[in-house]
Write a protein that binds this DNA or RNA. Sequence first.
DNA 1: CAAACCAATTTGTGATCACAAATGAGATCG
DNA 2: CGATCTCATTTGTGATCACAAATTGGTTTG
Lengths: 249, 249
Amino acid sequence: MANLANTNDDERVDEVEPHSLHEKVYLQLRTAISSGKFASGETVTIRGLAELLGTSPMPVREAVRRLVQDRSLEMLPNRTMRVPPMSQARFDELADVRANVEGYAAFRAAERISDRNFAAIRSINDRMGVAIREGDVPGVISTNREFHFAIYSAADSDVLLSVIENLWQQSGPYLAALLHALSNAPNALPTVGFGHHFELIVALDARDAEVSRKAMMDDILTAAQWYRQNVLFDTDVEGKKTELKDAVR
Amino acid sequence: MANLANTNDDERVDEVEPHSLHEKVYLQLRTAISSGKFASGETVTIRGLAELLGTSPMPVREAVRRLVQDRSLEMLPNRTMRVPPMSQARFDELADVRANVEGYAAFRAAERISDRNFAAIRSINDRMGVAIREGDVPGVISTNREFHFAIYSAADSDVLLSVIENLWQQSGPYLAALLHALSNAPNALPTVGFGHHFELIVALDARDAEVSRKAMMDDILTAAQWYRQNVLFDTDVEGKKTELKDAVR
DNA sequence: CAAACCAATTTGTGATCACAAATGAGATCG
DNA sequence: CGATCTCATTTGTGATCACAAATTGGTTTG
């Protein structure tokens, strides 16, 4: 019964890493867009991105198709693609929808979260506290993301989670601008960063769904409020080609 | 100043119709999936669909990529694609998320709707009443969709609207099953169909956002409840190749 | 000097070919 | 007779070519 020819595979390295090139390209472009490596309103071309990433146009074509699908890219009628321009109206829409959807996710999470997961969330928040004290802005942004998505995962709904991931992706360029703004205003870090995290933790600990929803909404809306007051919507349409080539493989 | 060589274009027929083949294929497959033309869990191949639609695999490849992106298709790790199998859990998730998101859309709509748009919504509901009295099940389904999306459009948020469209797309196969079930239970048509439409209309007329939200949530949740009680989740995994070729062009 | 024309380039798009991985059926072995 | 191996087929994937539409830059014209 033991033939060790084809069953034993020692290589389980590629468990998580994407295998197909278009997947890799998609992930690269996705993080590039959501981290602000492309200017708002900047136009891109398939061949251009392909050369930038050192691949043929083929994988880029498929990746771009997906990015357009989740509104990370925009396809204008006249055969040109661009990063959706940031605007006050779009920002407001995203903030409001996020507050509602992610508030609901917090609601669900409070109903279902395990003690173990709750402890993990509390510990993420502690790490975020360290980042705030050290003025580590990128650290704050990333732990904040961890914190939020730990809660959303606890809501235990694939459908809901994918909706939220899509909303965050669309908010990516705004987040990048927020990061930049916070670097120049370190004293705002605790307010904007922590937001209503403590209320959220207390509510989750008490498994109080309605209060959790409220805390999550407040967290999102107050951050958006600060953003509106301190980050201007510059209509940067061109320039900023930015580096990206990294390493496709 | 008047050179009539290239500026006068009398043909504005293709205003709304898609120009690219992959767009056409995408729309075809999308409606095919959401109208239940593919069985739940049925596996599909790029080349297979291409032959079915009479095109090369190329446009199908791009269309399928988009369908996977919005979860209308599922990509299994082992290089096979399938229609996401219907399940009780997935249905519950979709119903709950829909109730929350679309409830919020009704909330926003109540705050912003114009008299003109409200009149249009009321008239759509009247047409739906006719369809119900005549026992026209497909008519009920389609006017119901019109009714809901007229409200969601009044919410005036592209971000929100696209999220909702995505949720409806994912619910497509369930809706198809609902249609089939209702055809055998015509007496349930008024209850399931109209649901809480009248309360919704009254609330919208009064511009009462909170009551509108509640009515929309009730409408969705009671329909889901009826579905759970009367439609069984048959695990039909194969067969049912179904016609589709229609006309790509 | 500015507006209009024109040609060369760039663009998305569709089709086809090549290839490696996965599948499935047929043969072989125990 | 059942499990295993093997080989032909099918599959997604990447690259390349061809083409029409659109853009762009240069030139010409008034």
